[in-house]
Design a protein around this nucleic acid. Sequence first.
DNA 1: GCAAAAGTGTTGAGTGTACACCCATGC
DNA 2: GCATGGGTGTACACTCAACACTTTTGC
Lengths: 227, 227
Amino acid sequence: MKIQNMKKKDELIIGPAVAVDTLIFTIRDNKLMVLLIEIGSGEYEDKWALPGGIVQIDETLDQAAKNVLKKKAGIKGIYMEQLYSFSGIKRDVRGRMISVAYFALVNSDKLNLKTMNYYSDIDWVDVVKLPQMAFDHKEIITFGVERLSAKIEYSNIVYGLLPKTFTLTEMQQVYEIILGTTIDKRNFRKKILSLDILSETKKVKHGMKHRPAKLYKFKKRELVFTK
Amino acid sequence: MKIQNMKKKDELIIGPAVAVDTLIFTIRDNKLMVLLIEIGSGEYEDKWALPGGIVQIDETLDQAAKNVLKKKAGIKGIYMEQLYSFSGIKRDVRGRMISVAYFALVNSDKLNLKTMNYYSDIDWVDVVKLPQMAFDHKEIITFGVERLSAKIEYSNIVYGLLPKTFTLTEMQQVYEIILGTTIDKRNFRKKILSLDILSETKKVKHGMKHRPAKLYKFKKRELVFTK
DNA sequence: GCAAAAGTGTTGAGTGTACACCCATGC
DNA sequence: GCATGGGTGTACACTCAACACTTTTGC
């Protein structure tokens, strides 16, 4: 395979091609899930991969990642950040390819499941029960899960996983799932409320067979550091 | 639906070229300095840039960064990590180029200054007094300085800036320079010693016109997280 | 009235911060 | 003996972790 990247004084530079791969996380069934696509043909047939695509000559990496997200999962306008660039020589047996990984958090309530079901071969998968993965995508997922669990400790990043309004218990569950621990309810509430990142709404969550819970929302739905 | 991540063999992919740029930090004259090269010709003539180079088809990014460091600064075997990938469409006016930035820390005592002086156009520059920079390299430096000052708080990363043995005051000075603050001597010592990352040597630093200081060394000269 | 989750405070341990004086050496 | 930086301890504020009971609702 030939890869043409750039002309410099009429010379052809032959170098690695560049792709972006996106890690799209959500919480479903009390599990941290990642969006995967099953590859239908070629050398990686029947393996699963992160949604990804080649970076076009006129796109930045951020734009390329957003385009992948929109095209492959019908998602836009969510939190996304660059994770790391992976460059193993043999990570793609078909040719030399560098991948810049991005990660994104979505609240799966928001997703248009009809659009999603159109693909027979795209699905949410529990990050601890990954199928056979193509390329180095398992490694990328591990890297992303670590970044997420680190970042949850010093930012409001979980807003991406939660709906507009939510109860403190729901928020605590997200923390527990990502950190893989249980958390004391009183300490969690004290801590989160002291960070001044939430505001109370005047609503409560009814319809449970127990006392209704106050609903909160994030003051800012954008990344804020809390340490 | 079938997903093809990449075009078939023998087809040409036209995409951005990939470079690495290295941020090589050191402490000199009580300042945080970065290694820059003056560009001698072409569109960026007389501007300064980070040492960098094109990623070859058979190199990983890490290898490419190491090769740049060795070739342009004669440095090898030091701590280096990937920083971020920069991809602005117009970051290089000569053509579409993505740059993966790496950062490295060196103790400038170690450097072979004769080798360095061979280049008339390579020099250490105070990070707060940067000259006219080519590309987006100013932005990359800012990004790197932030990463460094964040990482100093939760790792032993400064080992890269210090000689094999050093006094606690020397170590404290490195922290003060990077964080841009003054630190209480007693609290600094208590904290650092409690981290269990240093060991005392049996030597002291003589030849000063004051009491000799104990010399310490890092237990591990590799990245260790301390939080 | 009972099941289920919501909501709420106190205490002790450990950590971070502020602060001042004596010590060992070179000259 | 004096100038210079080396080296040390204590008190207070704050943060983190452990822990149990009452409240409000649906049924």
